[in-house]
Structures are given as C-alpha cells and as structure tokens.
C-alpha cells in the first residue's frame, strides 16, 4: 500500500492541485499587476458573460470541433476502407498517412501557412494548372478560413482515425461476412448493413477523441492564422492565451474553467449517444 505514495504524490502535485487551482483562481483577482490575490466571488464570470468575446470564442470553438470531427472521420474512414487489404503498397501507404500524426503540430501549421500564402505553393500549382493567375488568400477569408484550418487539423490526425478504423475492420468476424455472402448480399449491401454497424465502437472512439481533442486545440490554429483574420478562427484556447499574456491570469483561468465545463458537458452526451448505438451489437 505504502509503495503507492510516491505515485500519488506526483499525481497530487502535477494533476490534482493544478486542476483544483483552476477552480480556485477563477474566483480571485490574480493578475500580473500586483502581488496580492483576493477572492472576488463570481465577478470574473459576470465580466466574461457581459463581454461578447467569450461567446464568440465559444461558438468558434464548437464549430471548429464539429468540423474537425466530421472531416477527420470522413478522411480516416475512407483511408481505412481504401487501404484495408494487406498488400505491400497498402502497407507503405498506411505508414505515409500515419507520418503527419507523429509530426509536431506547430511544424504542420507553419508548413501549411507557407503553402497557403497568396503566393504560396498551392496557388502556384492552381495557377499553373488553370493557366491564369490565382491568388486567393486561403487563411485570410473571414468566412472560410475556419474550414481550411479544420481541414489542416483533420489532415494531421486522419492517420490515427484510419488506424483505429482499420483495427475495427480487421476484427469483423469472417463468419458474419461469409453468412452475408451466402445470403446473396451485394458488396455494397454488405458494407452498409454488416460492416459499418460493426464499426460502432471505432466510431465512438474516433468521434469522441476528434471532437474533444479539437476543442482543446491550440497549436495548429496558432501556427496557421493566430486566430485571424479578424478573430474568425480565434478558438477559446487562443483567447485564453491572449488574456493570460495580458497579465489577466484570473480571467484566463476562468475561461479555461469554462472550457473544461464545456468539454465535460459535450463529452458525456456525445459518448452516451454513441455508446447507445453500440448496444445493438
């Protein structure tokens, strides 16, 4: 029993206390401007609620998370289906799609930022193919940049989704497939009526991790747009980072508490719903 003490001590100092402080400091006026830290009750929450920026950042965060969840699963699923058979080519291809997962998110962000500049590689390619100048600013469009950034995020993580869907596809029992074939189901029908439902656990995991992971996103957005243009991609973590940098530590803590609550609020229903789908198995 006592040999667990060091492990729990580390857990306490590095996980329990910081989480606890996240709650405590949200109710204080901790800032970089003065030394005292005084309790202020719900002042920070009232301030944030009266300021439109928090709600706009929350809305952007949820939109971003939803986009990433959709794109990442679409790409991952498509890749898994395409690369399912164990040929040599497929094995090599799987490795290549997994490489972005291992790359630094900041590196990915800066890479795409360079590619998507008005005079960057992507536009040069389009110009060459279309044989006319093309200088669309992919990351400076107040409407579509959030979609572009969500696509980049999904591109980075789609390899992981692919891997999990692949594992899911591999565990489908051969006898079930054989039974479907004997019953005369077409390949299309087998795919939709037998294999897809059996992937439910993989879908649960992938959707939940993509959704919740991107709600906590920061690095890719920071490296590509930094929250711009005109803050249309300013997800909550970037807003928190900016507030913290202003020396408003308590307000930043309050926001991260709000983010924590939001993630928790979204996680439970989403996971519950997806689990419900698995029950038919």
């Amino acid at each position: 029993m006592w040999f667990l003490v060091p492990a729990f001590a580390i857990l306490l100092v590095f996980f329990v206390l910081p989480t606890l402080f996240n709650f405590v400091y949200a109710f204080t006026d901790w800032s970089g401007f003065k030394s005292e830290i005084n309790p202020v009750g719900f002042d920070n929450f009232a301030d944030l609620a009266s300021n439109g920026t928090l709600f706009s950042a929350l809305r952007i965060t949820v939109v971003y998370a939803a986009l990433v969840a959709v794109f990442q699963n679409l790409f991952g699923f498509a890749l898994a289906v395409l690369l399912e058979r164990d040929t040599r080519l497929n094995r090599v291809a799987r490795v290549f799609f997994l490489i972005p997962v291992l790359m630094s998110a900041l590196a990915v962000g800066y890479l795409f930022q360079a590619l998507l500049k008005p005079d960057g590689g992507v536009n040069q390619l389009i110009s060459a193919v279309a044989r006319q100048p093309f200088d669309y600013a992919w990351l400076a469009d107040t409407t579509w940049s959030i979609v572009v950034v969500a696509l980049i995020h999904s591109w980075k993580w789609m390899g992981l989704s692919m891997l999990i869907y692949l594992a899911g596809l591999k565990t489908i029992p051969e006898d079930v497939m054989e039974a479907a074939r004997i019953d005369g189901a077409s390949r299309w029908r087998t795919f939709w009526a037998v294999r897809s439902p059996l992937l439910a656990p993989a879908v649960t995991f992938n959707v939940a991790t993509a959704l919740l992971g991107s709600m906590n996103g920061f690095d890719i957005v920071q490296a590509t747009t930094g929250g711009g243009p005109a803050r249309t991609t300013e997800i909550l973590n970037i807003f928190i980072y900016r507030t913290f940098g202003q020396g408003l530590f308590a307000q930043a803590t309050t926001m991260s508490l709000v983010l924590f609550l939001l993630v928790a609020l979204m996680a439970f229903p989403v996971i519950h719903l997806l689990r419900k789908r698995e029950e038919i198995l």
């Binding site: 401007f33 107040t142 711009g228 005109a230 408003l248």
Partner: peptide, 28 residues
C-alpha cells in the same frame, strides 16, 4: 485589424478597446 478585415465598425472597435482598457485598469 478586425475593422480593416471588415468584420467590425469603427464604433465596435472603439468599444472593444474601451472594454479591455477598463478590464486591465481594474486588474491593475
């Protein structure tokens, strides 16, 4: 910069600046 990008008006830019100024001044 938001105003230049076309998402806010000069009035909104001024108000956002004043709100943040008051928040920082209060914290200080």
């Amino acid at each position: 910069a938001d105003m230049i990008a076309g998402t806010t008006t000069p009035e909104q830019a001024a108000k956002a600046t004043q709100d943040q100024f008051a928040q920082l001044a209060k914290a200080a």
